[in-house]
Design a protein around this nucleic acid. Structure first.
Lengths: 146, 146
DNA sequence: TATTGTTATACTCTATAACTATA
DNA sequence: TATAGTTATAGAGTATAACAATA
């Protein structure tokens, strides 16, 4: 236990462990890149989620957190001038969050700064890229609930 | 943008997006399962990390956070009787964190409760399992810094 | 002197509940 | 009455800096 040789076909538990390890390393790289640009992981994640304008409520859904949290996160992004709230035409209750040009720039820089991820995924050849994408496509709908 | 058809070979950016989506969905399933058993994601992650006894300092390394945070996290696990601090024989400064039997039980329940992950990864056939494991093995060392 | 774990502090994230302004 | 966003509150995670005990 802990030092599994895994000679045969991996069990479901083995796969979960492997994916968890890759996911953890990926998000640490993401968090580091975001921090280098003065953002917390949640702020960077929110910025990524408002590349297309999104109502506050829908943003909460995308971030998988309560709507009350989004107020503070967007407040901080707005004070950094990385996003802004706009009025919705159809319903005066809703506010739509949109990324600013500065926000798009920071987002590009963060993505470019994920050097480990670039190194890791850049190492895959065409066949491996196709295989990985196909596996993700099969697994994702089941993992995220259809 | 956003609705990419991806007919050809996926770019590195495509791969990063796919892996991020799978990682996010996986950790949401993990967080839900942990919450059903009264644990925060950090507490569950820490519990997973102390299956073999680990000094406080090393635990901080495994969790990727500052050593000062670990005090509080282990305090809470200890108050729930899921982990305990033990004295180290060699160095009287260090405290070693070990999981309790109750902790191991909760950990098993959490793993079993990750129903979406079981469903998703359980759907893969032998060939796909081997391919996914191999891709993770290639990518992980580059992603986590050798 | 250097290291281990802790404490103090400040900020962020998070959920719950209650509020307001619309619908 | 129902919904969108906010506020108030409380608990938890996080980093920084300073500290006691030990090496």
């Amino acid at each position: 236990m802990g030092t599994t040789v895994t000679t045969g076909v991996p069990t479901t538990a083995d796969l979960m462990e492997a994916v968890a390890a890759v996911g953890t390393a990926y998000f640490q790289d993401f968090a580091s890149a975001a921090a280098r640009h003065g953002l917390t992981p949640s702020q960077a994640k929110a910025l990524k989620a408002v590349q297309e304008p999104v109502p506050m409520r829908a943003l909460a859904g995308r971030l998988g957190c309560d709507a009350s949290n989004v107020t503070g996160i967007v407040d901080r992004l707005e004070s950094l001038e990385l996003a802004r709230r706009e009025a919705a035409a159809s319903d005066r209750r809703v506010k739509i969050v949109a990324i600013t040009e500065q926000g798009e720039e920071i987002l590009s820089l963060i993505r470019a700064d994920m050097t480990r991820a670039h190194h890791a995924f850049g190492s895959l050849d065409d066949e491996q890229r196709i295989a990985l994408t196909s596996l993700c496509r099969q697994v994702l709908p089941l993992l995220s609930g259809q």
